[in-house]
Design a protein around this nucleic acid. Sequence first.
DNA 1: AACGCTGCTGCCAGAATCTGACAGTAGGGT
DNA 2: ACCCTACTGTCAGATTCTGGCAGCAGCGTT
Lengths: 232, 232
Amino acid sequence: MSRSERLLDLIQILRRYRRPVSGRTLAGEMGVSIRTLYRDIATLQGQGAPIEGEAGLGYVLKPGFMLPPLMFTDEEIEAIVLGSRWVARQPDTRLSEAATDALAKIAAVLPEDLREDLDATALLVGPRSELVENIDLGTVRQAIRNERKLGFLYRDAGGAASERLVWPFALGFFDKVRVVAAWCETRQAFRHFRADRMSDLNPTDIRYPRRRQVLLKEWRVTLDAQRRQPDA
Amino acid sequence: MSRSERLLDLIQILRRYRRPVSGRTLAGEMGVSIRTLYRDIATLQGQGAPIEGEAGLGYVLKPGFMLPPLMFTDEEIEAIVLGSRWVARQPDTRLSEAATDALAKIAAVLPEDLREDLDATALLVGPRSELVENIDLGTVRQAIRNERKLGFLYRDAGGAASERLVWPFALGFFDKVRVVAAWCETRQAFRHFRADRMSDLNPTDIRYPRRRQVLLKEWRVTLDAQRRQPDA
DNA sequence: AACGCTGCTGCCAGAATCTGACAGTAGGGT
DNA sequence: ACCCTACTGTCAGATTCTGGCAGCAGCGTT
């Protein structure tokens, strides 16, 4: 196994552990001496990997991921850049900042001529959506990622407010609105919630009892069924 | 200089040449023996770089670009994936295919757990726009990239058709429509053209006499001016 | 047909790098 | 006080990389 492959493996192993891991453990898992492990860690940190080591504890990889060298065609790069710009325009602050950061990272490694092309590029996205949401969509995405129940107040189309506890599993981006798809505990059914009508977000630590992928699949089936019998 | 850095350099050097280059030249430019160069080329090809070598001619890098190893946070990856999905939904066939390809490449290198997350992910984009365009936006983007004049028929809001020859420099993606921004030779002014009203595209080989970046800058100034004096 | 240029592969010895082991310093937790 | 840990320096042996050489095959020109 070449050195560069091993470095990638090291990242993957670190990803698996959430708690700090000792260098000794890591070295054992990769079949390599501790000394070499220290050198590998140093190399990765030199390449910008957010690995933190503390004496008496071990190593932790801050949540993230390393993309190995990858070839893209000009059009693929353009597609990624255009898409990231679109995301950067979305009202979801955390996500749009992430998109901006990602663009900056990509631009930093592009050869000069290509970077110029992108700076002054040719692919523009429309203006930022005007609709204001008074909740932090980042919180919602976190609940989705961690499969946690989420409470909030919902104001429906008629204006009536109700309190909800749901299992959120997806976030939809439409032209004007963002929609949270979830299983609603109160109603015992799949429901969609427009983000601009939600308020008083109350994230919990309670894990909901189903896997997100499963919910997503069932929800799609439900959607299909509704499409076939529109007024059931 | 480490080997991996040298490989990256090699790509950049190859990018510069448009015509085939002999391995000897490349080896000289990098200060390395021919034998090593052959090995480097083989390594790059093994990593998926589209380098083609032909006996009696030399090496050519098909247009494209190699992204070196890069760290992204979870949110940055999500942003890129979401953005690419949005692009994949656009009616611009070539670009949306490129987005799909890029997603596939990224998914291929993601660790299993993260890939699952993305497959069943959580971030969805709205339905594909319904508006049909009867021109190939890929042709337009190519004209923009290469700074070539472009001819076409335009049907304005009133329905009147006219023939245009323009210097296209930007492509805008709005909620429903795509718009080509260009300097119009006939009108001697910056004009915007809705893609759905364009037809009979006639790409030329004639390079237009200004740099794209310059046109873009001037156009922005013009827009600002119009904003201040709305009915000038 | 012959020649030169080129890509490409196998081989091998020397150079460069990587690796493992040991020793030692410093910080954190119990 | 003790143990566990991160981290650094050093050095010899293992591993990999590199350059030179020889040889085969495809392409274009003469």
